[in-house]
Design a protein around this nucleic acid. Structure first.
Length: 307
RNA sequence: GGGGAGAUACCAAAGUGGCCAACUGGGGCAGACUGUAACUCUGCUGGCGUACGCCUUCGUAGGUUCGAAUCCUGCUCUCCCCA
């Protein structure tokens, strides 16, 4: 059976380096599970690996789309699973790496089939919400899908909005699509988590922000500033600099915010990963241990299969 | 040297006799998460305790009062204006 090695962890921990080393060792490719590295207009602020790395190891789903494109987890699931299965014909293991929690889970477990909301419906519902407010939105959901209403976080407009959109568009309840089924994958998954002591992680993050600024993040952000309202640009490292361009804060304040929001994001990632008991955790320096662990897992697996 | 303003929890900042362990924001910590998810949302944040609660806090030392972060006095420090 083929194996997908998933390398995950908080932002800035050094996942890319480790994945590249693993990819070299196993002469294989890397599939990105990073919801911001998809965009070709962004590279410094999203920490896309340097050109030399991209050339030495084949990466998939990095900078393949535009910030103007609509893309979502479901499409990613289809695309990435196709690519992984395709790669398995000639390579094994394959490596998946990234920090976008939901994207990783989608590859590992799948996600329910829910129709993609059309722009018309989206505009209609959002416009309606802006005119009528949160309470009205809650009531609208209550009448469309009381079951979901009883379990959603009623203060979370994004969740409410999407449920209403789906109900509106399909004429069915949002609940009816939420099967919560886990898709069995025809390959084995080994999850490697990279993390370290919180203080060191924060130091790493702070340092990386420094490096990004030196590498020209300010110019990169300025180049996409005209499109700042795009969702793809509601991204740490850019939105803060947009506030600076807007004249709302100083550059120093903006950079400080980038650091803080990066730390927050890292914490959020860890919260998500914490409940996944399948992850085997290592420190960024433990590349030897990681390889040893993978070897052991692969061997055990072969034995099981031969029996 | 003279005059004025102020010192509140990690930071900022309300509170100006009891409803104050102290509004609010930030930060920090924890959590949720089914399609634009690096999004969006929630809880906690003096100490001890699961909890009713108990203990120690509002520069500092005293005082007034049944009761003080709030009133009075001394001291220390900070800022502003005049010299």
């Amino acid at each position: 059976m083929n194996t997908l090695i998933v390398v995950l962890g908080p932002t800035g921990i050094g996942k890319s380096d480790i994945s590249i080393q693993l990819a070299r060792k196993y002469s294989t490719d890397i599939i990105s599970a990073d919801s911001r590295q998809f965009f070709r207009e962004l590279s410094i602020g999203t920490a896309v690996p340097p050109k030399t790395d991209l050339e030495s190891v084949c990466h998939h789903f990095i900078q393949t789309r535009s910030i103007h494109d609509y893309y979502n987890v479901s499409e990613y699931e289809t695309d990435a699973i196709d690519r992984i299965n395709h790669l398995f014909k000639i390579k094994n293991p394959v490596i998946l790496t990234g920090g976008s929690m939901m994207y990783i889970d989608t590859i590992c477990k799948g996600i329910d089939d829910i129709p993609t909301v059309t722009p018309e419906i989206r505009d209609e519902v959002i416009g309606w919400y802006e005119d009528n407010g949160l309470e009205a939105l809650q009531q609208r959901l209550l009448s469309l899908d009381p079951e979901y209403y009883s379990i959603v976080d009623l203060n979370n407009p994004k969740r409410l909005l999407h449920a209403v959109e789906i109900c509106q568009m399909t004429g069915k309840t949002f609940t009816s699509f939420r099967k919560n089924t886990v898709r069995e994958r025809p390959f084995r998954i080994i999850k490697i988590g990279i993390n370290q002591n919180r203080e060191l992680l924060y130091q790493r993050i702070n340092y990386r922000v420094e490096q990004m600024m030196e590498a020209g993040l300010l110019d990169e952000a300025r180049s996409v500033y005209p499109f700042k309202s795009l969702n793809s640009l509601n991204t740490v490292g850019y939105k803060e600099l947009f506030s600076y361009f807007d004249g709302d804060i100083t550059l120093d304040e903006a950079v400080d915010l980038v650091r803080r929001n990066s730390r927050k994001y890292a914490r959020k990632q860890l919260t998500w990963f914490r409940r996944d008991k399948d992850i085997h955790w290592f420190e960024p320096t433990q590349i030897q241990e990681i390889i040893a662990f993978i070897e052991q897992e692969l061997n055990e697996h072969d034995k099981l299969e031969n029996h």
